[in-house]
């Protein structure tokens, strides 16, 4: 799918939570602002706009990214999943969302969509055998990395929570990987 460009704007098509969305974006516009302001999907939060807090984390082609650091114009044809798209079509929230509720893995809730998307990305990375800073180097490479608490903490450290819900967030993630 080619993007059509006119001056400082281009047309792009993003698949957002399974639905194709075609829009004309300012070349300076980041994915986060497209989601929040153009597509009325405010689940991804803006905490810093600089890649420092993780509140804007979404999944692009299954990988977690800071959407405040990605120019929307570069994402033509990409698959984007935001917190709004996790539950699927059903009424029931995603098991990780449910676990956050049960564990009280949040207070103000502003970091929460980012924590949830980031955790799903992290679980997939571990599943695919990506090591982290705390992974035992003796583990066979390419095999799924088991996620203990230290692994979860390390892998989620890009997602700040000023309310300090960290211990409960780690428990919520443990609940869904067990």
């Amino acid at each position: 799918m080619g993007s059509h460009s006119h001056g400082h704007h281009s047309d792009v098509t993003l698949r957002v939570n399974g639905k194709p969305r075609t829009l004309t974006v300012d070349h300076r516009r980041v994915l986060l602002d497209v989601l929040r302001d153009d597509l009325d999907l405010p689940g991804a939060k803006k905490g810093c706009d600089h890649g420092q807090c993780g509140a804007c984390t979404v999944l692009v082609d299954g990988r977690r990214v800071n959407s405040c650091l990605l120019l929307a114009v570069c994402l033509d044809g990409c698959d984007i999943t935001t917190v709004e798209g996790l539950a699927g079509d059903g009424e029931e929230p995603h098991p990780l969302q449910r676990a956050f509720l049960e564990r009280d893995g949040f207070q103000c809730g502003y970091c929460t969509p980012g924590q949830i998307c980031s955790a799903l990305g992290a679980v997939a990375e571990a599943e695919a055998g990506h090591p982290s800073h705390v992974t035992d180097p003796a583990l066979p490479s390419g095999r799924p990395v088991p996620l203990d608490r230290d692994e979860i903490r390390e892998r989620l450290s890009g997602n700040l929570c000023r309310c300090g819900a960290y211990p409960r967030i780690v428990e919520a993630v443990e609940d869904v990987i067990r």
Binding site: R36, L41, P42, G43, A44, K45, K46, T82, V83, E84, L86, A87, P93, Q97, F100, L101, D104, F106, G109, Y110, T112, P113, I116
Partner: peptide
């Protein structure tokens, strides 16, 4: 809580 974990809680800019 459910609004917050599903991204449906709207904050001041939203």
């Amino acid at each position: 809580g459910r609004l917050k974990v599903t991204g449906s809680a709207r904050y001041a800019a939203e």
